[in-house]
Design a protein around this nucleic acid. Structure first.
Lengths: 365, 365
DNA sequence: TCGGTGTCTGTTAGCGCAAACATACAGAAA
DNA sequence: TTTCTGTATGTTTGCGCTAACAGACACCGA
């Protein structure tokens, strides 16, 4: 009333009336609670709760009465209250760096496949490869008291690690196994993957090898692949002949550009190793455009094994990162531990082995 | 004591001792609560709560004491309890059909950009284009009592619509404006987009036009584009010369296959309209492989304007679907209404206008 | 001196639900 | 008959937090 009067001092008295009548028809309904359903069906709240959760014995007659009332009212249980009362929150926090590069959506698919069979539900948080954001996202997630955390990578800020340890819930670090885990790990060794590819390239007879990738201060997995790669080359007395890094933009286009740059700058290059398939595909398209003989004049390889590659004019050599398997295995660990008697199991470590797919861009011998 | 005694009657007395000592070293810590912080800092729970939420007046000295204690203990507030007590849940449910096709991640980016400036947080649910799953995901989401819902498309089951209406929270349907909205809408008219492309193609002089797309009983937006497309052609007395649909698999590869199929079956085709850029790109690669003169012998066009296209040998003609703008606008509506005095605003309707990007695969005149 | 006016801190109650513990009652067993 | 089952329902309590209100205290001017 008081506020209204205030406004009325101005010029819009009539208009206001309009607006008010305009609002009145709105339902303005207080959100439904168990009590509403209980009253509508003539049983206690507890019985309604039992029916809706399918727990405990309830006679068929009551069950039907309750379900009918719930449906008629359009009641949706309040999980906030339920979770607080039962001390169980069936959420799994999934923290990943990005959704836009094809790899994490596939991990998510694997996770969902497994969790769909359980009462657990994934909730995604995206960090954009920034440790600061990771910390914030993690904090937000943990404040919902999830049943478990699946988080990409082994590198986290001290604060993040502390939170994960203190949370007292299963934590699965995924994608990477090169490093020390907080709890469980599922992934591949990127260092080993880099080495493996290096060996395959050398074995195929290439010697003037260029590397093209992301600027990777924060992409630890790409860095580890690079390290493993150069290390294995060094063991055979080979050094990277040239390298080129990019940031942002369309990966396919960047792959093209970088390839052009490198082949111009170092014309005797005979192999291009790309840190992901997208830029690899760009490079491949560039080479084909220019009439470069792939794989004889120049060989190419990428990383990830993304589905996209199937549609390219040639099959790019790559290495499957086992994305959906990783998702499935991680989800499985969380699901198992969530059911376990408490403090059960622990520190699982699953290292998957990526396989080279030779495709058409790596000479066979 | 009593229970112990019970078990002791059996044979495992000594083992039990072992097990107990085995468990004892485990932290077995009860999750931290406000009370723990309150005791550690010597103030009331309420004061701790005020400090952690930056609300109300607290002296600098107490504030520091509390923050120190909270950090030292590693306390993370329990949002479940907070939300229940305050009746405010700063979550926005975002319900989309898929994450793996480049379009929704970009919408998500737009949403996040806007929500990052607010206390709101997006939570994603994926339906895989299945109405049944949409219903389930929606129910799950609503049971967390979010502050708003952003949901793709205008077609929902009756149950879903009922839930959305009954929820009493802002609902923004995104991507599509061809149909009746529950509350607010942000999107483009796909029917109009189809018509626009048809007109452009006809104007460029093409007449034997093929359509390639997804099997679309459930992809309503693709269907609407198709309808608009054929309708505009019909107006000029042109009929679709051939059509081909796919399901699943690598879109790029499918684009290739379908293009081959169609050009073989109907060799006099002079234009291929693809329902998305990915299959369009596959078609383009196929044509270039076969030495087909693009755009003179055959013209091509896709839909979406995905970044990927930048790296192709030719620029595929396409139409930008305004994905991140849609995300931003939708999030803005939710954010504004979440702050509004209640029942404020409503039924916003934002129709964006996609622009044709002619690229290199549509003759210019 | 007395309130008055802030500033800071504490107390009480309850959000909506589920765990744990009653209670009621029918039928079976003794 | 009584007692013992078990099934079906209800009651009480509290999850961890915040809104709303209620002190306590210092400081000001009259």
């Amino acid at each position: 009333m008081d506020k209204r009067r205030f406004n009325a001092n101005k010029e819009e008295a009539e208009q206001k009336v309009e607006r008010v009548t305009d609002k009145t028809p709105a339902p303005a309904r207080r959100p439904l609670t168990l009590r509403d359903v209980s009253e509508a069906s003539g049983v206690s709240e507890m019985t309604v709760s039992r029916v809706l959760r399918n727990r405990g014995d309830v006679s068929e007659a009551t069950r039907e009465k309750v379900l009918e009332a719930a449906k008629r009212l359009g009641y949706v249980p309040n999980k906030i209250a339920g979770a607080l009362a039962s001390q169980r929150v069936n959420l799994v926090a999934v923290i990943i760096p990005s959704l836009s590069n094809m790899v994490f959506p596939e991990v998510m698919t694997g996770i969902s496949e497994v969790l769909d069979e359980t009462p657990l539900q994934p909730v995604v948080g995206v960090t954009n490869y920034k440790p600061g954001r990771e910390e914030k996202v993690l904090y937000e997630m943990l404040s919902w008291r999830p049943s478990g955390v699946i988080i990409a990578g082994l590198e986290h800020s001290d604060a993040s690690k502390a939170m994960l340890k203190a949370a007292g819930i299963p934590v699965v670090e995924i994608m990477d196994t090169d490093g020390e885990a907080i709890d469980a790990v599922v992934g591949i060794s990127h260092r080993r993957a880099g080495r493996k590819m290096a060996k395959a390239i050398l074995k195929a007879g290439y010697r003037r090898i260029g590397f093209l990738g992301t600027k990777m201060p924060l992409d630890h997995r790409a860095r580890k692949r690079f390290e493993g790669f150069t290390e294995a080359l060094a063991k055979e007395g080979v050094e990277i002949a040239d390298q080129e890094f990019y940031e942002g933009g369309s990966a396919l286009a960047k792959g093209r550009e970088m390839t052009e740059t490198m082949l111009t700058r170092t014309p005797d290059i005979d192999f291009l190793y790309y840190s992901n398939d997208m830029i690899g595909a760009g490079g491949l398209l560039y080479c084909l455009d220019k009439g470069i003989d792939v794989p004889n004049q120049v060989g190419l390889a990428g990383f990830n094994g993304v589905e996209l590659l199937d549609g390219l004019p040639r099959q790019l050599a790559t290495m499957d990162a086992c994305r959906s398997e990783i998702g499935r295995a991680a989800a499985q660990i969380i699901a198992t531990r969530a059911e376990a008697p408490e403090g059960e199991g622990g520190k699982e470590r699953i290292e998957l082995t990526p396989k080279i797919e030779t495709g058409d861009t790596l000479k066979r011998r």
